[in-house]
Design a protein around this nucleic acid. Structure first.
Lengths: 333, 333
DNA sequence: ACAAGAAATGAAAACAATTTCAACATAAAC
DNA sequence: GTTTATGTTGAAATTGTTTTCATTTCTTGT
């Protein structure tokens, strides 16, 4: 009546062997006589038997599934990482449970818990801040965790990033070389280590090296969306900034367009450099100068690292920093 | 030594009740005396018991997980759908296993099979063409399937779309009203029903209504990427097209930029209308005129439909068409 | 106070695999 | 031709729940 499923038991009976033997055949265990293997395979084929991964997961305590917590799939920065993650995951026969968190701390914890309840073999976390609660959950479970494009100063779990500090420093220096004195810096909340600790530090350092005094009026915290670009640009001109370092591409496009819509020439009258090198940076006119992050690779390497942790392999360095470059495109001279 | 997990059995023992009672408490079954419920809850809290979803899935034959097959998360059209899917899914306590297919028929089948092996309660498929093999798998398993932004002329499974034919017809008519005679049409392969059957039909119909003869030299099949925009634009000017209807936003941006980079004014000298209304359409200058598809809603409605199918609820209409509009933005007069 | 119906509980059987360990068969060694 | 080692196999336990069904405990009406 109900969906009559073929189980390993049916195959065993039909092939005249035990379930154990069928299991061995299915799992490629070499301790099976070739003739019986063939016989079992033939029955599997005839009955169209498909192993039940849930039962397998219960018995073996492995689900070949990893949880991926992402702020928003719709954000090109994160979706690029996600693509790298999924490709490597499927290369290693894992599947991905993807969950959007909106960077909401409560959702993050809640989602992490349901992933752990589902017995994922590992977790890749993308977000910004690792709250205490999150950290507690990480260590409570034995499940390996890797952060992608996300840093935890605590360094208790694996992580893959670039050196945001020097990348930002390089960005600012590019603008300094172009003669700017009033360079603004726009990122999300400084509560997040990537912004508040690393990027801001790089920004300050570059200014210091150029003997320009740090002016906190030039530093802004804003959400990462296209639509706030208008408002942010208004603030930038209010403080007479002539150039800006932006931590997110979508926001950078918003700022660029706000400038263009006001008849301001970019890069002649205003320069912009952004941080992610998502596809967006080449879609605007002028194209956006940017830090070139290896987005796909950050995801891919994070997933690869996770496979090693799940296999309990020896890890040389679980905090990895990938190389970046700076691409001067059209939004800087 | 190993990850010593607390099981329902531990809770039962500690609370002096049976596993069945603990199970009832955990699942909110009302047939439990308030005092024992309280006692059990207290033990659950004290031991920090978390139910194992895999065991639960095996026993109940429900995983509260749905599979989502997506061509590429990195494509804003699809990721927008995916976001709608995930939001509704989590609203109904489901998780999403996301798998990229690259629209590769072989991968699609393979991925579908691993999803079914993982006993997902339902599948949402985004792609283009439902091959015979895919269709066979769909009906082989009793697992409900809903197509999102994807049409199967067969209409055997649920689906959520817009009316691509009239949307395209409307798009062409907008350009006709602006006086164009040589309007090109660019989409992916005509093997896909959305393009070859519906959009192309709408294109032809609009021309016919305007008594303009159909010219197949004005019709192009191209992949949906930004970078081929250049090449496509070259072809468009070669056939003297003065306007174009594009089936994908990213490709449309590529074409727009190719035109702009050659000093062609849009919309004065060349008009473009695209089809998805992804964020990209507002990020370009000029902004792209477009068919306004309710992307998020397509995903959301698809997931909602799937929940009904999974619950075996009565469905009035499993082939749903959502409304669309046309937004004349900056790339048309 | 008692029968009858309802509510609360527990024992044990699924669920569909893997895994352990003992048993048997075969091959190699002497 | 034993003995020993190695290769194959199966029985049964295990995994952590849900679910069924029988049993016990309450209510309630008379």
């Amino acid at each position: 009546m109900d969906k009559q499923t073929i189980t390993i038991y049916d195959v065993a009976r039909e092939a005249g062997v035990s379930m154990a033997t069928v299991s061995r055949v299915v799992n490629g265990n070499p301790n099976v006589k070739p003739t019986t293997r063939k016989k079992v395979l033939e029955v599997i084929d005839r009955l169209d038997y498909r192993p039940n991964a849930v039962a397998r997961g219960l018995a073996s305590k492995k689900t070949t599934t990893v949880g991926v917590i992402i702020p928003d799939v719709t954000n090109l920065y994160f979706s690029s990482l996600a693509r790298g993650i999924d490709d490597i995951a499927s290369m290693y026969k894992y599947n991905i449970i993807l969950a959007n968190s909106d960077e909401n701390e409560q959702k993050e914890v809640q989602v992490l818990n349901t992933l752990l309840a589902k017995q994922v073999d590992g977790v890749i976390f993308m977000g910004n801040k690792i709250t205490e609660e999150l950290r507690a959950e990480f260590s409570r479970s034995r499940t390996p965790v890797v952060l992608a494009g996300t840093v935890d100063p605590d360094e208790q779990v694996g992580s893959v990033n670039i050196d945001y500090e020097t990348a930002t420093k390089d960005s600012v220096e590019l603008l300094l070389e172009n003669g700017h004195k009033k360079i603004a810096f726009v990122s999300e909340s400084h509560d997040e280590p990537i912004n508040g600790q690393f990027r801001l530090k790089g920004y300050k350092q570059a200014l210091k090296d150029a003997s320009i005094e740090y002016d906190e009026n030039l530093v802004f915290q804003s959400e990462y969306t296209y639509k706030v670009g208008e408002a942010v640009y208004e603030q930038l001109i209010k403080v007479d900034a002539t150039a800006v370092v932006v931590a997110d591409d979508e926001l950078a496009v918003g700022i660029l367009n706000a400038a263009l819509d006001r008849g301001v020439s970019v890069p002649e009258d205003f320069e912009i450099i952004t941080s992610n090198n998502s596809k967006l940076t080449e879609m605007t006119r002028p194209q956006l100068s940017t830090v070139v992050q290896p987005l796909y690779d950050i995801g891919a390497v994070a997933m690869r690292l996770l496979t090693k942790l799940m296999n309990k392999e020896e890890i040389d360095e679980k905090t990895v920093k990938l190389p970046y470059t700076i691409a001067g495109k059209g939004s800087t001279k």
